[in-house]
Amino acid sequence: MKIIVNIFLLMLFSLPAFSQETIKLYPGKAPGSESWDWTEKETSPFPNNRMLYNVSEPVLLHYPAPKEKATGTSIIVAPGGAFHILSIDNEGIRVAEWLNSLGISAFVLKYRVVKSQTDNPFAELMPLMQNKDKLDSINAPVVEMAKNDGIEAMKFVRSNAVKFGLDPGKIGFMGFSAGGTVTMSVMLSAEEKWKPDFIAPIYLYKKAVLGSNMPKKETPIFVVVATDDSLDFMPHSVELYLEWVSAGHPAELHAFEKGDHGFGFAPRGTTSDMWTKNFEFWLKKRGLIPQ
C-alpha cells in the first residue's frame, strides 16, 4: 500500500506546472470553412518540436498563470508556419509556459491553415518558399480566415477577462512569422474595442498583412528579427517599426546580427537568444509585469 501511495505522489508531483484548457472560437463550423471535413494532424520533423497541419477548427489553448504569480496581463500567441503548418511547440506552447513563469496568462491560437495534399507538409511547402508570390496567392483565402480567428480570440479574451481574473486593458498579441502576419492583421483590421493593447510581431511576413486601420489609442510594439533571416524578412520588421514610429506609437526594434529565421523559443547560440530577456525587460518597463 505504501508503495502505491508513493507512486501516486510521484505521479502527482511530476505533472506539468501549467494546466491547459481548449476553447472553441466559434459555436459551430468556423465561417468560411463550413465545408472543410479534414482532420488536424501532427508531425515531428525535428526532435521535441511538433508541427500541426490541416488545422480546420480554430481554438485557443489557455495556459493560465500560476495564481501566486498572476499579474492580470495576458497574451495571445500565434505560432508560425507559412499558413501551412503551426509550429505549436517552439512558437506556441513553450512560449506560453515561459509567459506563465512571468505571471502572464497565455492563449495559444490554433488558427486555420491551408490543407496539405499529403502527410508531408514540408515537402509541399519548401518549393513554394522559393516563389512567395505563388505562396501568397495560395494562402490568401486562409490569411483572411486566420485574421478572423485572431479577432475572435481577442473578442473572447477581452469579453471574458474578468471571469479569468485578467485585466481587460492589458491584453497583448504576439506572433511568429505567419503568426506575426496574423498579429498585425488583427491590429490593423479589428474594431478599436477589439484591438490588442500591445503587440509583439516576431520575424513577421509583412507583405500578407491585412488591414490599414492604425489604433487610435497609444499601442506599444516590440519588434524582433534576425538580420541574417534566410527568408529575407528583416526589412519587413524595419519597415513596420518605422511606420509605428511615424504614427506616434511607442516602438522598440531588436534586429539581432545572427539567428536566421524561426528561432522562436529554441536557443541557437546566437544573439537572438536574448530576445526573451529583452521582451521581459520591456514588459517590466511598460508596467505589464512587476519590476
Rank of each mutant, 00 (worst) to 15 (best):
M1Y: 06
P16G: 12
I23S: 06
K24L: 11
G28N: 15
K29P: 01
G32K: 04
S35L: 10
W38Y: 14
S44T: 15
P45A: 01
N48C: 00
N49S: 14
E57L: 06
V59P: 01
L61N: 13
H62E: 12
K67P: 02
K67R: 09
E68C: 03
A70F: 01
T73N: 10
I76F: 10
V77A: 07
G80S: 13
A82N: 06
I85M: 14
S87Y: 07
I88W: 03
A96S: 13
E97N: 12
E97L: 03
E97M: 11
N100Q: 15
S105Y: 03
R112A: 01
V113N: 04
K115W: 01
P127M: 12
N131S: 10
D133C: 00
D133Y: 01
K134C: 00
S137R: 14
V142P: 00
A146L: 04
A146K: 08
I151D: 04
E152Y: 05
M154C: 04
K155Y: 08
R158M: 07
N160P: 07
G165P: 03
G165T: 13
G169I: 03
I171Y: 07
G172Q: 11
F173H: 04
S177P: 02
V182G: 01
M184L: 15
V186I: 11
V186R: 10
L188G: 08
L188P: 08
L188W: 10
A190F: 12
E191W: 02
E192L: 02
K193D: 13
K193Q: 05
D197F: 03
A200P: 06
I202P: 08
Y203W: 09
L204V: 04
K206I: 01
K207M: 05
A208W: 08
V209T: 07
S212K: 14
N213Y: 05
M214I: 15
T219L: 15
T219R: 12
F222P: 11
F222R: 09
F222D: 10
F233L: 15
F233A: 13
F233W: 10
S237T: 07
E239K: 11
E239L: 10
Y241Q: 02
W244K: 07
W244P: 06
V245R: 13
A247C: 00
H249F: 05
H254C: 08
A255D: 07
F256S: 09
E257T: 14
G259E: 02
H261N: 04
G262M: 03
G262D: 03
F263E: 06
F265I: 06
S272H: 03
N278K: 12
R286S: 04
R286A: 09
L288K: 09
Q291P: 00
